[in-house]
Design a protein around this nucleic acid. Structure first.
Lengths: 166, 166
DNA sequence: GAGGCCTTGATCATATCGATCAGTCTTACA
DNA sequence: TGTAAGACTGATCGATATGATCAAGGCCTC
């Protein structure tokens, strides 16, 4: 994967505040030449550095005020099918496969408790999933963010130069 | 919180593919008038609908290839201090307070296992946190996403009209 | 020391931007 | 049922940013 250098981080930090910031303004704020900024932006597009889904919408603004984790045990032979099915459930925001006895951890949202029950059911019915357990989040203490990583992350181990692309 | 209507969703879906898409192009793709699109975009900015942190950078592109959950038990009296301290750790991407015996669940990233150990230690040293337990993610099955919610979420219960703003 | 890559700073014609206006439509409310 | 408020439209304007392109300079690897 394309590794971001310090120039990228500065650019992305600015973009993070306003993704639609003008190239000219970006150049000023980062102290780079306009052409450079343009080239980087172009590269982000072509290389797909920025994830599809670059627009962060808080789920609550869509009416999804309830967060929860659904942990699922599954038949290991059907992992791919299960994942494929989960991917089709919009309320599943994230899903991870942890080391340990639980096989999949899904971060889901729902409109209300009833809706959460429905979502949990949908997950339980995914192929290969044998059992689920739901844990409601009382509070979203820190919402998903990458910004601090851009700003402070790295430090001593930071690269000054981008690693070879290919 | 500002509730997004169907027009917003269409706009945001387009923006999601390319946050820097031209207003003119947005207007064409959504079938709206240019002025309307401009007004909405302006509103997103002023009302802060789009989260700060609108640029989604995959942590792996910053060198953080390891994902994990750190669950923490804490002295309930010091919740605020703990959260404040966690917020200062860049590697903490998200944090939730679930109902149940574990008090905080943090989604963290790290460069490698050693680095993860360091991050877990930092969390353990936060004020009020009495005990932590780390669970490594073998695989990020579904990365954080909101797009499907924009596209399919809602359905029968979708609002056709934005709820009163104030 | 040569070649490659990235950056810079400049230019150009074109397209977009933000602001503004009057007119129409919808919804909410009396 | 009529009126008022708000949202969307379609149009205009000048100012500005855009994308493309170029030659030149810097830094790296080989």
């Amino acid at each position: 994967m394309y590794q971001l250098d310090d120039t990228d981080r500065r650019l992305l930090l600015e973009l993070d505040q306003d993704p639609r910031m003008t190239v000219l303004l970006l150049a000023q704020r980062t102290g780079l030449a306009r052409g450079t900024v343009q080239a980087r932006l172009e590269r982000y597009r072509t290389e797909g550095v920025l994830r599809l889904g670059s627009t962060m919408v808080p789920p609550a603004a869509l009416g999804y005020g309830l967060h929860a984790t659904v942990s699922a045990e599954l038949d290991q032979h059907q992992l791919d099918e299960a994942v494929e099915a989960l991917r089709r459930i919009p309320e599943v925001l994230e899903c991870h496969a942890p080391a340990g006895d639980i096989d999949l951890l899904c971060h889901v949202v729902a409109r209300d408790p009833d809706d959460l029950y429905r979502v949990a059911e949908e997950i339980r019915l995914c192929p290969g999933i044998t059992r689920t357990s739901t844990s409601v989040y009382l509070r979203e203490v820190i919402g998903y963010r990458v910004r601090p990583l851009l700003r402070h992350g790295g430090g001593p181990r930071a690269r000054t130069r981008r690693a070879p692309v290919r």
